[in-house]
């Protein structure tokens, strides 16, 4: 038998060099931050002429407040990122958020909890967070065991969880103001508000989870090609379950941070949160089809949306206009992304 030792075949197929690859990745991830810079410049300049107040838009305090205000949806959007990378979606986060808030505030009014004084606070927090995690686990278990699409499962649980919210207290708001809690929520450390710290902390933890751990790696693989993941011996169900529990936990955490300060929850609170969260995630470049996306870029998406809201308000636009503009920008951004990616693909398809 003659031994065939093939010489190197020079293929004209263009393959990315590592440098080009890194550059492309950087551009893809940096796009949202570039967008933020554009927004800042635009609103600063436009604000000079159109502002309804005398304050400059780029005011440092104003920016810190912006971060704080992006926290409630931001924390949920970060969780939504890992769900979507995994190839799922969670529409029930808004309802989970409201239910966790009710548990937080109502539990502190229970006589035996009140008897505990301030040590009831961590307990109430714990209960609320557990509620979120349990609701997430229900979603995860249903998606895992029934094989029904996550969109359908969480559409159902969105209605169901919201039903629970109304069963709890009817149309009445649930209120309880604990001044220790309010102090904590309004506290600032190194200039940043408590809520901002939670937002950044969650972003850091999820970034580590998705880029550095086995769970993160497997979640990407499942989202990108579920069958190949199964063939590599990855158990798909448990990973999905974990992600749903994480987002349930985060929806509750978001509620805990927000309602510690406000002290009153309406049964309609958190409605449309799921859509705002998805908007932020998609704006950050994460793909609806799964397997691709970044936690950090979602943070950018969250800030970009909040900037738009605040900026448009600054130059005198009303809420309806703000929503219209955000909607248009979302579509424009995705269209642009599609055009750019199409070009990139044709280049490779030589």
């Amino acid at each position: 038998m003659t031994d065939v030792t093939p010489d190197k075949i020079v293929s004209p197929v263009k393959e990315d060099t590592p440098v080009a690859l890194q550059r492309r990745k950087l551009i893809a991830q940096g796009a949202i931050w570039a967008f933020i810079v554009v927004e800042l410049i635009f609103f600063s300049v436009a604000g000079e002429y159109l502002s309804v107040s005398d304050k400059a838009f780029m005011d440092f305090e104003n920016m810190l407040l912006l971060l704080k205000q992006s926290a409630p949806i931001g924390i949920i959007a970060l969780g939504m990122t890992i769900i979507m990378i995994n190839g799922n979606i969670d529409l029930s986060v808004g309802a989970t958020y409201a239910l966790a808030a009710i548990v937080l505030l109502d539990s502190m009014t229970w006589p035996w909890m009140q008897a505990l004084g301030d040590s009831a606070i961590p307990l109430a927090w714990g209960l609320a967070l557990l509620t979120g995690m349990a609701l997430g686990a229900i979603n995860g278990l249903l998606v895992w065991k029934t094989g029904v699409d996550a969109f359908i499962v969480t559409l159902g649980s969105m209605l169901g969880f919201r039903g629970l919210v109304f069963m709890y207290n009817g149309e009445q708001p649930t209120s309880h103001l604990n001044w220790t809690l309010v102090d904590f929520a309004e506290a600032r450390f190194l200039g940043l508000h408590t809520a901002t710290w939670f937002l950044l902390g969650v972003a850091l933890l999820l970034w580590l989870l998705m880029t550095r751990t086995v769970h993160g790696r497997n979640a990407y693989a499942i989202g990108n090609n579920r069958e190949a993941a199964v063939n590599a011996g990855i158990r798909v169900g448990p990973h999905m379950m974990i992600n749903f529990m994480i987002i349930g936990f985060l929806a509750a955490l978001s509620a805990v941070v927000f309602y510690s300060e406000s002290g009153s929850v309406n049964p309609n609170d958190g409605m449309l949160f799921e859509l705002w969260a998805i908007t932020a995630v998609v704006l950050g470049g994460t793909k609806l089809t799964g397997g691709y996306g970044s936690v950090v870029a979602t943070l950018g998406g969250v800030i970009a949306i909040q900037l738009l809201r605040k900026g448009l308000g600054h130059i005198g636009a009303d809420t309806q206009t703000v929503n219209l503009v955000i909607g248009l920008i979302l579509i424009a951004v995705l269209f642009l992304d599609r055009q750019l990616n199409r070009k990139g693909k044709q280049e490779l398809r030589t």
Partner: peptide, 26 residues
């Protein structure tokens, strides 16, 4: 067989990343 969107290294180590941990991280 492959997760096409992933890089070469990650595809190759996919079934065994669990064993390649140091601490909590891969």
């Amino acid at each position: 067989g492959l997760v096409l969107g992933m890089n070469c290294r990650d595809n190759m180590t996919l079934p065994q990343v669990g064993a390649l941990r140091s601490g909590p991280f891969v």
